[in-house]
Design a protein around this nucleic acid. Structure first.
Lengths: 252, 252
DNA sequence: TGACAGACTTAGGTTCGTCTAATATAATTA
DNA sequence: TAATTATATTAGACGAACCTAAGTCTGTCA
């Protein structure tokens, strides 16, 4: 079973763990890694050597462990795949957090980039399409828990239609409401209308597919509004305030 | 990476392949297996020995290969997982057949039974819920292909509502239409209203969760209507005509 | 500052799944 | 039926990922 990605499943797990540990407590020690991955200490040493050889980490015996740029990218990508899958299981299939996490941990190594994108788009679509939405998903929950019976359909659709018209009336009068990304608050979601960010970050945004139409969610805003953590297409991104100001958003 | 199931991923692949080959050409020879799985002949020999030891197959050197009951069950289960996943990727996420198949081949080994059920329910729900349906999924396709833009929402929902009311008028007058499973034709789908099948088959149906509320699809009907191949919760099942006559269906 | 505990590594072994090369069996065909 | 060809198996090796047991390093504390 060949992995779809640059390293073996096992190595992806090590990378993911190293990244998480570093982000949590600044340094990653073999002991922590061993504990999290439930393997023996020598296994960790072996993995570290292997990862160092492939230039995913900086490492020499007894030295501290840091990720190379390559390693960080790889780790972030694994985590992104995990998050998207877990999110899908929890939010769409309404699976419990623990199981969603466990299965995502295994699937993250085998899902293809293309299908990743589809999962992301699908979740987005559910959020945006007036025919779907939270209410609709809870209808799925009802279906699962009641032996395949549907909730009151006609009323459900009537309500949806009313809501849509209501929204349209409002929206139609005020024209489209747009805001700058830095004006939103954690938890807010929106659709990108325009990206006007220059330099390295601008390029990075484009590379990640952050263009008009993309869904963005604000995750965290540091004091004084800098930096701003956002989630785009399953990626976690950190932006400077000035950079965020260059992105125009239509709140959803 | 421990498998969720009774055998390793690799052995699951062998079982699946053996089952498919037997069903296609009556006997499975190591050569065919090697070719399909793209491994060397000695690898196959090794796998066969291992599977025989675990009593999944009947096998001794140079002898022909047959599945034990245990092996057949295991193989069918793998194939079922594969089918459900591939189906979801193709029908819901609108992924191309080839990629859907490839990714399903890898995911089938790691998906949990619970999440399997959810995938199945979700697909069913999409088919039944008037707020979703084929039209809605094609809306997702539009969304994917048009950079995150939605099709005409208001019209879409209005139509849905009209359709639903139309159907209700008809249905309301005629009361619920029910048929026996053996009266349906290939491609037809329906919801189980009652199961009245005795003996071994009846028990098997219950074990597989074929109870009131379950969605059933007719796959193939042999000449003279016996046997009838159906698909239930991702399983392929073959029923005698008399058995099918014991199952009451509300066509969808 | 020197001894000790805890953390890390080395050494060496196991299992799984794969391979190539060599050998044995079965099937085909002259 | 004997020779040839195709197919299977045995033998032996390898890499990945894990393990236990036995050192080795390092930071802390008396």
């Amino acid at each position: 079973m060949t992995s779809t990605y640059a390293v073996s499943e096992s190595m992806e797990d090590y990378l993911k763990t190293i990244f998480k540990v570093i982000n949590k407590q600044h340094v990653a020690r073999p002991k922590d890694i061993a504990k999290i991955l439930k393997v023996s200490a020598p296994s960790v040493t072996g993995a570290l050597r292997s990862l160092a050889e492939k230039e995913f980490i900086h490492y020499s015996p007894y030295d501290l462990i840091t990720l190379t740029q390559k390693g960080e990218n790889a780790a972030k990508d694994v985590i992104r795949r995990h998050d998207v899958l877990q999110n899908f299981f929890e939010k769409v299939l309404l699976v419990e957090q623990k199981e969603a996490d466990e299965v995502a941990c295994r699937m993250e190594h085998v899902v293809s980039p293309n299908i990743m994108d589809r999962f992301i788009s699908f979740i987005e679509f559910l959020e945006i399409c007036p025919r779907a939405g939270e209410k609709w998903i809870s209808g799925f929950g009802y279906y699962c828990d009641h032996d395949g019976k549907l909730d009151n359909c006609e009323k459900c659709i009537e309500l949806t239609l009313e809501n849509l018209r209501e929204k349209k009336r409002k929206g139609g009068n005020e024209a489209m409401v747009v805001k700058k990304l830095n004006e939103l608050e954690p938890g807010n979601k929106g659709r990108v209308v325009k990206v006007a960010v220059s330099g390295e970050t601008g390029r990075r945004l484009v590379e990640m597919g952050v263009t008009a139409g993309t869904m963005v969610e604000i995750e965290k805003v540091a004091p004084f509004g800098d930096p701003i953590d956002i989630k785009v297409k399953g990626y976690h991104l950190s932006l400077r305030k000035e950079e965020a100001a260059g992105i125009t958003i239509e709140p959803v």
